[in-house]
């Protein structure tokens, strides 16, 4: 059936089977392969994207269910060549090794800071607890989100 989904602000239409998972739609239709998958059971968080601003697991939502919603993926974070503070924080704090969980982690973190610009370390850990990182032991991911929160606040103050 014909599906039309707003992905990163662009309307993407295609005829798909009702059973197609949103993660596959994102990866195949606009070809945005930054969103990954790592399990079959909604446990790993590699597929997290924002749906109407909230992080969701795109492996557990059908593409057809997403029509009429705004999807944002990792590819939307950088705007006009300027990195999102979350992206910069992940780089600055060495919060990624293999990079496979990174898009899901960054999107989850972006949503956290949108809702809570000054989270505690425990709030950060809770927010990302729906994702698995096999490489970093999470310490530097927490530091990266903290970095982003601080730099975002500083930039806001300057503005």
């Amino acid at each position: 059936m014909k599906v039309s989904i707003s992905i990163n602000g662009e309307n993407v239409s295609r005829d798909v089977e009702p059973r197609q998972l949103l993660v596959h739609y994102i990866r195949e239709t606009p070809g945005l392969t930054g969103t990954h998958w790592g399990c079959d059971t909604s446990n790993c968080g590699a597929c997290v994207v924002l749906m109407d601003g909230k992080p969701v697991k795109s492996c557990t939502i059908l593409a057809v269910m997403s029509e009429g919603h705004e999807i944002a993926t990792v590819e939307s974070l950088e705007v006009d060549g300027e990195l999102d503070p979350i992206q910069a924080g992940f780089h600055e704090q060495h919060a990624l090794h293999c990079g496979f969980c990174t898009p899901g982690m960054m999107m989850t973190a972006r949503a956290l800071l949108d809702e809570n610009p000054d989270p505690t370390d425990h709030e950060i850990r809770t927010a990302i607890s729906g994702g698995i990182c096999r490489c970093t032991g999470y310490k530097n991911i927490v530091a990266a989100v903290r970095w982003a929160a601080d730099h975002q606040a500083a930039a806001k103050q300057e503005a």
Partner: peptide, 27 residues
């Protein structure tokens, strides 16, 4: 009926559930 789908979808992927007709109530 499917709402959040976080119980049903994993079951469907594992093919432990095979509904023929899915009614999405999220709207």
């Amino acid at each position: 009926v499917i709402a959040g789908g976080h119980s049903l979808m994993p079951m469907m992927k594992l093919r432990l559930a095979k509904p023929e007709y899915l009614i999405d109530i999220n709207d």
